[in-house]
Design a protein around this nucleic acid. Structure first.
Length: 425
RNA sequence: GGGCAGUUACCAGAGUGGCCAAAUGGGGCGGACUGUAAAUCCGCUGUCUUUCGACUUCGGUGGUUCGAAUCCACCACUGCCCA
């Protein structure tokens, strides 16, 4: 199965330019994907483009990950209904460093390979181009009419927010990247999310008009949840690839919590399992959906891919302690169990303050489980707080030493899935 | 430079002198049901607070008034149209 066929059955191809498959069959082809340095870490939304590169390299082609140091200074209007805030150069530099170091984990850069991966930053070539050079070199070849016909531009022209010249220029800047890579690295293919189609095509157009060359492209569908919700967001915000921003446990939990219909699609897109492996997983899942084999496998594969085997094991351990036997009394968790739980929020509390009992509301807000007593009160009244797996009903209650597990712990739950472990010393 | 429209909570959007902490929808959070799912139903959603209440909010600043998101003046920003 070739690269394109592989992606096709996985549902990872949305639009594809004619001739792309032939080009890939013909020779080892260099292809690139751009990553926006909008934060100092990538989040799971970037996983799909990363996977495109990984699949590409596996198929024997050469991947380039481009970090948009220059394009990040402009701001991509695609899919945005409003003008973006510009990042300061400091922030941008910080972000570029973060993003780069993450990308390095997923690709093989071994320079003895003919298809060794590369990372570039388009600031490298843009920093020396003057504005006049650019409008003569790039701008002259693309008409405004052409640029305005793009969806991303059209939508913004119709909206009441309008669009700055800066963002309007974005597609040209990105298009020039492709041209530059084509010229200097013989890069003939650009991949990306389907929202990038317009920008990508401007690139192939620029290559055609400036050098008469032929370049190719395809895009993958943007990941959505089956219920139409945003992908990759939870109550805590984005799911990041950086373990300091999203712990491996929370990362694992995110995938574990996928709905059935999402899991069906995601397992194909986000794992490297073969078609038949996936087919049998789906069959098993359908026999007994409550086991959630699909979700478990999905979460496993991804946690290992992003954080490694060891972190995956820890995430599973924590998950089992917290969820495998939720009806069991909290005492069934040993001191060791509690001590070794990783990834959940932990804090410490002074035992002396507890000897005479502390009122629960102050206790919860002092431990930063809630921002204020009022918030804690509301949540308790809504039935959303448990101590040591016992639901709390009286907001005015006191907690004291008799609430401690093994004389030193309190396990607090907000909702079903948010755990806090307080070590009382 | 001229004309017009607008700026309300996370978003969209109603409100046009007191009954407004501000309708409604979406989103978010919590609960019930369940499989740590989906769908559905219920509650919460400015801040603080012992339900009382206090405080801060409707682009900004001043003013009119017993009382302003609402009226007036000026300013700022945004969009559309004309030059």
């Amino acid at each position: 199965m070739n690269f394109i066929q592989e992606l096709q059955w996985r549902g990872m191809i949305q639009d594809i330019m004619p001739g792309t498959e032939e080009q890939l069959k013909k020779e080892m082809t260099c292809a690139y994907v751009g990553f926006d340095p909008t934060a100092d870490s990538l989040h799971i939304g970037s996983l799909v483009p990363i996977l495109l590169l990984v699949h590409l390299q596996k198929a024997g082609h050469k991947p380039i990950a481009l970090v948009g140091g220059a394009t990040g200074m402009v701001g991509d209007p695609s899919g945005k209904s409003e003008e973006r805030n510009m990042l300061s150069e400091d922030e941008l530099n910080k972000n570029i460093i973060g993003v780069k170091s993450q990308l390095e984990k997923f690709l093989n850069f071994d320079s003895t390979l003919p298809n060794a991966a590369e990372i570039t930053n388009n600031y490298e070539w843009f920093k020396t181009i003057s504005f006049l050079d650019f409008i003569r070199e790039a701008g002259k070849h693309i008409t405004v009419n052409y640029m305005m016909a793009k969806d991303s531009v059209k939508k913004r022209l119709e909206s009441e927010n309008g669009m700055s010249f800066t963002e309007f220029t974005y597609q040209l800047v990105q298009g020039y990247d492709f041209y530059w890579l084509y010229k200097n690295k013989n890069c003939k293919l650009q991949m990306g999310g389907s929202d990038q189609w317009g920008n990508i095509v401007t690139g192939t157009e620029l290559i055609r008009r400036k050098s008469g060359g032929e370049a190719f492209a395809f895009t993958c569908p943007l990941i959505k949840k089956a219920d139409g919700g945003k992908f990759g967001k939870t109550e805590k915000g984005n799911i990041w690839l950086d373990p300091n921003k999203t712990s491996p446990y929370h990362f694992y939990q995110f995938w574990l919590n996928a709905s059935d219909s999402d899991a069906f699609n995601w397992i194909k897109i986000f794992t490297f399992l073969t078609e038949s492996e996936i087919q049998s997983l789906i069959t098993e899942h359908e026999i007994n959906p409550s086991e959630r084999k699909l979700q478990k496998k999905l979460a496993q594969e991804l946690t290992i891919f992003v954080h490694g085997e060891k972190e995956f094991q820890k995430a599973v351990e924590t998950t089992e302690k917290l969820f495998s036997n939720t009806k069991a009394p909290a005492e069934s968790l040993s001191v060791e169990d509690l001590n070794s739980i990783e990834g959940i929020v932990k804090s410490e509390f002074d035992k002396n303050k507890m000897v005479n009992g502390v009122d629960l509301l102050s206790f919860l807000s002092e431990n930063n489980i809630f921002e204020s007593k009022g918030a804690a009160r509301k949540m308790i009244q809504n039935g959303g707080v448990s101590i040591n797996r016992q639901k709390v009903s009286d907001p005015n209650m006191n907690v004291g030493l008799d609430h401690l597990l093994h004389d030193c712990f309190m396990l607090i739950q907000v909702g079903k899935k948010n755990y806090y472990l307080i070590n009382v010393l």
